[in-house]
Structures are given as structure tokens and as C-alpha cells.
Design a protein around this nucleic acid. Structure first.
Length: 481
RNA sequence: GGCCCCGUCGCCAAGUGGUAAGGCAGAGGUCUGCAACACCUUUAUCAGCAGUUCGAAUCUGCUCGGGGCCUCCA
């Protein structure tokens, strides 16, 4: 059974069959660069990152395009507020976006075009729509006439009459129908602008995606993605523009990720309840964020909270503990040829889960099963003398790492990751590594003198402060409670 | 008002017609001087009601509760 994806257009899961066998073209709406990215952006980008990775893993030659919208009202307004050029503002936040995505461990899309690099194509499409009678000029603006596109609202499944009841007309706009939207806006003084057949101006919001996608992927392509909130009006308008201009079907599969909520409510700028990626990264490891996001299906809403991130961290730690143990258990053993079937089983289950509309939550559950099997094998008596078990562990270990890579997990050195999380936790506990070290020395001394009650006292004191002591053959270590 | 989504164990979360994955937390046990890790065992009939069906958490209707889009938003 092959890949199945939920298509917003049909409202159900469909067998995934790219237009050209073995090749996939995917366009995902990126960000408008006027502010730092929040956790909602993180989700959208991580989700499509793993979709991209999984398509590659499944053998599809995939072209992934993710754009930057670097000309827009919000950018202009923000730049004016700060008294800088909108171009410089855009540049600043493109850099910030790249840094954020990098720290979240995303792989680079094939192309990352900017709207302002495609002004020529935007003008071409706009002109074509005018020529076809689908768009019209009014005082330097160009509007798309939604009445001329019979399939308008087919993606969002709305009804024009109902929409009209709530539509608002901004004064100064000369729309024939209140639902019409701008393809080209005439420039106001001081705004960035480009020469066009309709005078100096700049693109409307939706047209840049039509221009960039058709330029890089062709007029028809396989997957178009983005957050749910882009379904209307953004994607609806993209369809109208692209299909109106080309006369060809635009996109085969529409994929939309769910929201990140805070206290059951959508995170949004207007509510002021958003968290930026950079803020969260001060407290939590980037991989914890990824793990948290992938522990739910991409279409479900997820609730962002401290509690949920801590839980995600616990889950991820379980993986790293196991990977660390596997590494240590097999490090001094030669790689054996005899492979086992455990890894193959995990991989089969993993693929099955991912094939079902990228069910990462289920896929991770199967990896957890692999972890348990691996731990069980390692704790078998005389493990190191049993070649068969060693081979099994090596196989599982390799499989978990390889499959983890497909969803961008387990990329760190286990011991280093565990150490990092441990040290990060100290900040919250207001205790230093040195203090702990001193206590350990005191306890060691007490134990040497057979003063176990004193030793336990030290252990209990530390435990009260959130530190657990671990006695091993190699000496005493500590961990967060 | 129109359209749409959701309500599964204490918490997170899969499952969307054949009789409830996984994680976290909890309980009991093995291991350990103690502890931790790990391992073993253990914990739900799926908001409610009424239908369809041999059979439903999964389909239909209604009720209750939560949320989203319709204005910028991932």
C-alpha cells in the first residue's frame, strides 16, 4: 500500500499519485517577513519539512518551493513605524527566519524565492488575466473579478451570497464586486513600487504565490501546502488566479496543517497569546519542540503549554537514554553481518504509519516499541556474550536512527543531548554543577567511612532540590528529578 | 447568520465499521546498600441520547460542551 494524503479539496484521503511518476512538485506558503516567527510558524514549517523528507525517503524526486513574501502592507507599515526601508526590514526578518528554521533542524527547500524577484512574472499573469477579461483595472489598481471564475470558493466550500453579506469594502477601492481582490495596487508616496502597464505599483497579497509556483514548478503541480488559515482567502485566490490565467488545473493535492492553540484558543497576534521560536528556545531544546509537534497528527490542533513541552522532553529523553545505552552496549563489539528482523519490522510499521497521511504520532509510537525491544535485549543476562542479541540491538539501533532522521529526530549525540538537557534544567532549579559536585564528594567520603545515614542525608537534601544521585560502577553521577 | 472541525484512560495522543496503539504520570514487582535507568505486570468501551448494522469510538440524527474560518494570520 502506498502513500495516501488528505486532500482539502476533496475532503478525504486519496491515493497519492504525482502527475509524473516518481516526481513531485510541492509549494508551501512561507512567511510574510515583518516579525519574528512564532510556534505556529514552527509547526507549519516542521510539518512540511517532514513531508518533504518523507517524500524523498519514499523515493520521490521532490522539488520543494517555500517562498518569502517580502512586499506587503504589513511590512510597509512596520518599516514606517521603525523609520527604515521596507526592503531592509524584510531582509532582517528573512535572516531571522533562516536562523530559526536552522535551529529547529529543518532541511533547506529546493528553492526559496522572494516575491520581489518575481515582479515581472506577476505583471505577466496580471496582464493575462486582464486580457482574458477576468481582471480589470480601476484607477491604477487591478482587481480580480471573482464572478468570472465559476469555481471560486471550491476549496473553502463557501457560498458567495453568504460571503457577500459579511464582505466589507474599503473606501477608495473601486471593486465591481465586494469579493474582488487586488492583483496590483497603485503605489502611494514612499511605498516600494515597480513600473507596470498600470503605472507604478506593487503586487497584491495572493498573486506572488501564483507567480512563484508557476515559474518554479509549472502551471500545474502536485502538492500545495500551508496552514489551515490560508484556505480562505489566500489559497482560494491563488486557484482563481492560476487557473484563470493558465486554463489548467492548478494543484492536485491541497494539504493544510492545524493550528497551535494556547489554552484551547488559537494563537494569534491579535490575541497577543503567541510565543516566538527564539523565546521558547531559551528554555527548551529545539528537538523537544519538534518532538512535541510531531507527537500529534499534523491536521489536529495542538495545545502549546509548559506541561506539554515537559512531557515531550520526557518522551524524547527516553529515546536518547536508549540510544545512549545501545551505543555503549555495542561500542566495543565488532559489527556483525547477521541482521535481525526486528529493525525491518519497525521500519515496515513506520512506513505504514507515514504512508497514512503522514501519521507521525503513530510512527513515533512504533519507534517507542523499537526502543522497548532494544532495552529489553540490552538488559538480557550476559548480553555481551550473545552475538545474536548484539546483532539485533545493532540493527534496531541503526533502524531507529535512520527512521528518526526521516522525521528529523535523534540527530544529536545521545550523551551530549542528555547532558545538555540536564544542565539546562539546573537553571530552573537554581543550583550549580559545582554545588552538586561538592555534595557528591562529601557523600563519597561519608560512604567510605561507612556512614550511610550521612550519605543518605546528602542524597535526600539534593533530592529535595530536584537532583537525583546515580551510583554506577564508574562513580556517582547525577540527574534531574 | 453561513461553512468547517473537535470531544478516546489522571494528562498528551493514535485509531474512523469488526470488538481500544504509544508516551507521560500512578500502582505492584525485578535489579540496586539506598536511589535512578531499564525490564515485567497493571490502569478506558470511546461527551450524552436515539437510530442504521450480524457488529460502531468509528455511519446517521438530535442534545450538550469546546474551537476555527468568513478581516491580517502558519
Amino acid at each position: 500500500m502506498g502513500l495516501r494524503v488528505y486532500n482539502t479539496m476533496s475532503g478525504k484521503k486519496e491515493d497519492f499519485q504525482p502527475r509524473l511518476p516518481g516526481k513531485v512538485g510541492m509549494y508551501v506558503c512561507g512567511v510574510t517577513v515583518y516579525d519574528y516567527c512564532h510556534i505556529g510558524h514552527a509547526r507549519a514549517n516542521i510539518v512540511f519539512d517532514i513531508i518533504f523528507r518523507y517524500l524523498l525517503f519514499s523515493g520521490y524526486e521532490t522539488t520543494y518551493v517555500r517562498n518569502y513574501t517580502d512586499v506587503d502592507d504589513k511590512i510597509i507599515n512596520r518599516a514606517n513605524e521603525r523609520g527604515i526601508l521596507s526592503k531592509d526590514l524584510a531582509e532582517e526578518f528573512i535572516t531571522a527566519f533562516d536562523e530559526d528554521m536552522d535551529s529547529l533542524g529543518l532541511i533547506k527547500p529546493t528553492h526559496e524565492p522572494r516575491a520581489t524577484e518575481y515582479i515581472r512574472q506577476i505583471i505577466e499573469i496580471t496582464q493575462k488575466l486582464i486580457d482574458k477579461g477576468i481582471a480589470y483595472e480601476a484607477a491604477g489598481d487591478v482587481y480580480y473579478s471573482v464572478d468570472k471564475f465559476p469555481n471560486y470558493l471550491k476549496l473553502s466550500k463557501r457560498n458567495m451570497d453568504d460571503m457577500l453579506a459579511g464582505a466589507r469594502v474599503t473606501p477608495g477601492e473601486q471593486k465591481q464586486n465586494p469579493m474582488d481582490f487586488a492583483l496590483w495596487k497603485t503605489a502611494k508616496p514612499g511605498e516600494p513600487s515597480w513600473e507596470s502597464p498600470w503605472g507604478k505599483g506593487r503586487p497584491g497579497w495572493h498573486i506572488e504565490c501564483s507567480a512563484m509556483s508557476s515559474s518554479l514548478l509549472g502551471e500545474s503541480f502536485d502538492i500545495h501546502g500551508g496552514g489551515r488559515d490560508l484556505i480562505f482567502p489566500h489559497h482560494e485566490n491563488e486557484i482563481a488566479q492560476s487557473e484563470g490565467a493558465s486554463g489548467k488545473p492548478f494543484v492536485k493535492y491541497w494539504l493544510h496543517n492545524g493550528f497551535v492553540n494556547v489554552d484551547q484558543e488559537k494563537m494569534s497576534k491579535s490575541l497577543g497569546n503567541f510565543f516566538t521560536i527564539r523565546d521558547i528556545l531559551k528554555t527548551y531544546d529545539a528537538e523537544v519542540i519538534r518532538f512535541f509537534i510531531l507527537s500529534a497528527h499534523y491536521r489536529s490542533p495542538i495545545d502549546f503549554s509548559d506541561h506539554n513541552l515537559v512531557e515531550a522532553q520526557s518522551g524524547l529523553r527516553r529515546f536518547y537514554e536508549a540510544l545512549d545505552a545501545a551505543e555503549r552496549a555495542t561500542s566495543d563489539v565488532d559489527q556483525k553481518e547477521n541482521r535481525s528482523t526486528d529493525g525491518a519490522k519497525v521500519e515496515e510499521k513506520f512506513r505504514e504509519a507515514m504512508d497514512d497521511d503522514f501519521n507521525t504520532a503513530l510512527a513515533i509510537a512504533h519507534l517507542f516499541d523499537g526502543v522497548r525491544t532494544m532495552n529489553r535485549l540490552i538488559s538480557t543476562k550476559k548480553f555481551k556474550k550473545k552475538q545474536e542479541l548484539i546483532a539485533q540491538v545493532q540493527d534496531l539501533h541503526e533502524t531507529i536512527l535512520r527512521l528518526g532522521e526521516v522525521i528529523g529526530l535523534f540527530r544529536s549525540q545521545p550523551s551530549a543531548w542528555l547532558e545538555k538537557v540536564k544542565l539546562a534544567g539546573l537553571i530552573r532549579l537554581e543550583i550549580t554543577e559545582e554545588e552538586i559536585g561538592e555534595s557528591i564528594q562529601q557523600r563519597l567520603q561519608a560512604r567510605k567511612e561507612k556512614d550511610f545515614s550521612r550519605g543518605d542525608e546528602i542524597r535526600n537534601d539534593l533530592e529535595a532540590r530536584g537532583i537525583l544521585l546515580l551510583d554506577t560502577r564508574e562513580g556517582t553521577n547525577w540527574n534531574l528529578k
